[in-house]
Amino acid sequence: MPAPTQRFTLGGQRIPRGTTRDIRLKVSERYTGDAITLPIRVIRGRKPGPTLFVSAAVHGEELNGVGVIHQLMFDTPLPLNAGTLILIPVVNIFGFENQSRYMPDRRDLNRSFPGKPNGSLASRIAHQVFQEIITKSDYGIDLHTAAGSRTNFPNVRGDLNVTKVRRFARAFGCELMVHGRGPEGSLRREAVKAGCAVITIEAGEPLKIEPRVLEAGVRGVRNCLIHLDMMTGKPVDPPYQVRIDRSTWIRAEVGGILRFHVAPGEVVETGQAIATNVSVYGEAQNILHAPAAGIVLGMTTLPTVKPGEPVCHLAIPKGATKTLQRIFASKQHKNYQQIQKDLATNVTVSEQELDVPNLPQDDDNT
């Protein structure tokens, strides 16, 4: 990683300390030969310090991160005292324009890092971003949402076995810290290999900019800037914070229409009803139950399912009993309640379970 005293250049432009510069980084060309560029804003404090990048829309339809960066750019004062902040509101410009997760050739840009200068379109863009931004940064925050027809309760993901990453993840201030190196070729995994401590934030749905997710994202970025001494201020702490080393997907057993009994961020007990699956005539077919005590990390927002399709992503904390007791006790926290309530508006939650006639109880339905 670069020493904080060396000159900083991006896209061939030198950005002095104490200045802000908007840059268009060329990453490809159109059929006409015209340049395709990524919009980037570089903010430099007057004092030396670390370099942090914040990126969004590596998956082109994941827009919440775009909203977070816009708010950081335009609505939220960022009196940067030290270091360098790089804001990239749209990384996958092709997917962004087509409202698609993928590149035009159906490749996943977030499986293409660190890329190659003479590889596929995705690989070339990944290479350019990696060389121009990631290798020049000490830290990174990569903003994501759930995949199509799903939503995620805000959580931070990273290789928590790496001390620098773990401390940075904790500083962001999400309630849930999910351990994982990330898939091969993902931005965060390859960046950490290169010495840049990157965390991924998963929050909300694709193709939306959700107000409470924006609040959580902006709050987290500011927390990280304060943690790195790039800004002054007091961080906003979450009501609880727990490390997640294990999670499981609860999947549909039969085709039908779901009636949900839980919402994103909700704490559930072993055996608690997650959803009732009903037929097209409204007759209950089976009930999906939680296989362990945990927290609803994510869930489908699409009520229709076929057998095997994912319904609920359940995070299982370490030391579940004591941790869950603390979580129950802290649910009056305002920020927690607000975002949980807003995300729950995307699913219809019913407390009432329907009777399932003539079917044995299935204790292992995941």
Rank of each mutant, 00 (worst) to 15 (best):
G148N: 14
L143Q: 04
L160P: 09
M177D: 03
T163F: 02
R170C: 01
E175A: 10
N152M: 08
R166V: 01
R167F: 13
K164A: 15
V178E: 01
H144A: 09
G158M: 04
A147F: 08
G158T: 11
L143H: 01
R170Q: 15
A147G: 14
N161I: 10
D142H: 06
G148D: 14
T145Y: 11
G140C: 08
L176F: 11
L143R: 01
A171S: 15
N155L: 13
L160N: 08
L160Q: 05
G158R: 01
T163V: 12
L143V: 04
H179T: 05
R170T: 13
L143A: 06
R150T: 05
P154F: 03
H144D: 09
T151W: 04
S149V: 08
D138T: 02
L176Y: 04
R157P: 08
A171E: 08
A146H: 01
Y139P: 03
A169S: 12
A169T: 07
A171D: 09
S149A: 14
A146M: 03
M177N: 06
V165A: 09
D159E: 13
L160M: 12
R150E: 11
R157S: 06
Y139M: 12
R150C: 12
A147Q: 04
K164S: 15
R167S: 14
F153R: 01
N152K: 03
V178T: 10
F153K: 00
F168E: 01
M177P: 00
A169L: 08
V156S: 03
F172M: 07
V165I: 13
D142R: 00
A147L: 11
V178D: 02
R167C: 06
R150D: 01
S149D: 14
H179Q: 07
